[in-house]
Design a protein around this nucleic acid. Structure first.
Lengths: 248, 248
DNA sequence: TCTCCTGATTTTGTATGCAGAATACAAAAA
DNA sequence: TTTTTGTATTCTGCATACAAAATCAGGAGA
């Protein structure tokens, strides 16, 4: 967990050896900044619960683990703080942000407001190949569901929702959505959903795909909103549940 | 412009000398981190156009001007990059993000989606004193309009919209809204609005206040959406205008 | 035993140093 | 004159050094 970074920036284009084929001449591989690497690393560690809510992020320890110095690490931590994944304690460093039901509910409410725009834009702007890609993801997700493979299901589910927002062609919307979503995913990983809710979610996805295919924006908006509302209920319930179990 | 920081963190509460009066004991004033100071400084400099779009942010120069070292400054710049106010060029530092009509339109679309939630929450959650405060701001704005004092008008206008979103009690929503808004404000500063649009905006604000007072969420939602749509049109038009004038 | 102080240690926040990349400049070639 | 190539300088990205704040350990006193 949290392996060293090993500056994996090896020449992406590789030696375009041999014949001077119509190779696009790769271009000089911009090395990825370490702070970005650190952001990604830490974000996924937090989202996947590898770094539990509330634990302190000791700079020295983390910088050793990631194999980078404190400077880019601190930059990364501050970025994650704006995403709400970590909390900055003045003069006392940072902790992984505790999961707060109130805040989570607020986040989901904002995402709900965005769903309307997402549905509208997706229907209006998605290319046929965008839709085809989403359909492919949908069936892969169905397969995961049939297999009761929760991890794969989540992964494809995420991919679908991201593809939907991307298809709308509004980069700001996509960025905002992603950022909010990070906090929700964290809880998702913690909470298994009930079989009933799982089945219902899959049915909802069927309808979502149908509406998108028909490019029925009004309907897609409504479906996405409902879908999120159900998800909200499930997530908050799971959270309550977890808290209760904790207390026992 | 961009005066040194002078660590204005002087004991905020001042010496709580003399009698142990019921002073709220200020607490040992947590010194404000320099990177935060830098963020605020740079953000307002950019929003107010003091740092023009496209110009390079030379680290050495900036750190000297602000009187802080490069480390916290770099942290600040990276934070502003996530807000979209600056653009990071790998190995070549950062520039003030160019104003891009496309991106601005996308930002405004997202804000539009949020307006619905803002209106709903404000009507449902605002306290009477919240509403009173907004009303006070409203009249101050009206005064500024009567005086044709554009700067004061903008300031109060901003304050009203922020108060509205704050009154809803959803901190995540407020945070998201603020962030998106920074990019719009920048253009606002650049573009004077036409007298006709100004008058119309004021009338819209009258209706907004009325709907809030009546706690008519449905109506407030619609009004805020329309208001933003008009603003969007005005802002984009002003932007076109500016570009055209530039070309001439 | 508990509380409160005091000094040592850890940890953060900030500044500075260093290597490599990018740019600017100047001379040579076309 | 224009383009190209080699060199010097500037700047960024990262690491490290240093100072201030916080935490911890131990002991004195109640």
């Amino acid at each position: 967990m949290l392996e060293r970074v090993e500056t994996g920036n090896a020449a992406a284009g590789g030696a375009a050896s041999s014949t001077g084929a119509a190779a696009p001449v790769v271009g000089p591989i911009a090395r990825r900044p370490l702070h970005e690497e650190a952001v990604d690393r830490l974000r996924s560690a937090i989202v996947q619960g590898e770094l539990a809510p509330g634990i302190r992020l000791n700079e020295r320890v983390l910088s050793e683990r990631l194999g980078i110095s404190r400077t880019p690490l601190r930059e990364a931590v501050k970025l994650l703080a704006t995403e709400g994944l970590v909390e900055l304690l003045p003069n006392r460093g940072a902790i992984v942000a505790p999961v707060d039901a109130e805040r989570l509910a607020q986040t989901l409410a904002v995402m709900g407001a965005l769903e309307a725009l997402i549905g509208e834009l997706a229907c209006a702007q998605a290319s046929e190949s965008d839709i085809a890609a989403i359909r492919a993801l949908h069936y892969e997700m169905m397969a995961a569901h049939a297999r009761r493979d929760l991890a794969a299901y989540f992964a494809h589910n995420q991919a679908i929702h991201l593809a939907l927002v991307e298809a709308g062609g509004n980069a700001v919307l996509a960025h905002t959505y992603r950022q909010l979503n990070a906090n929700v995913r964290r809880v998702r990983y913690m909470a298994n959903l009930s079989p009933a809710r799982w089945d219902a979610a899959v049915r909802e996805h069927e309808e979502i795909l149908a509406a998108l295919t028909a490019r029925d924006g009004v309907r897609l908006k409504a479906l996405l909103s409902d879908h999120l509302a159900h998800k909200t209920a499930a997530v908050l319930a799971a959270l309550q549940d977890g808290a209760a179990r904790e207390a026992a």
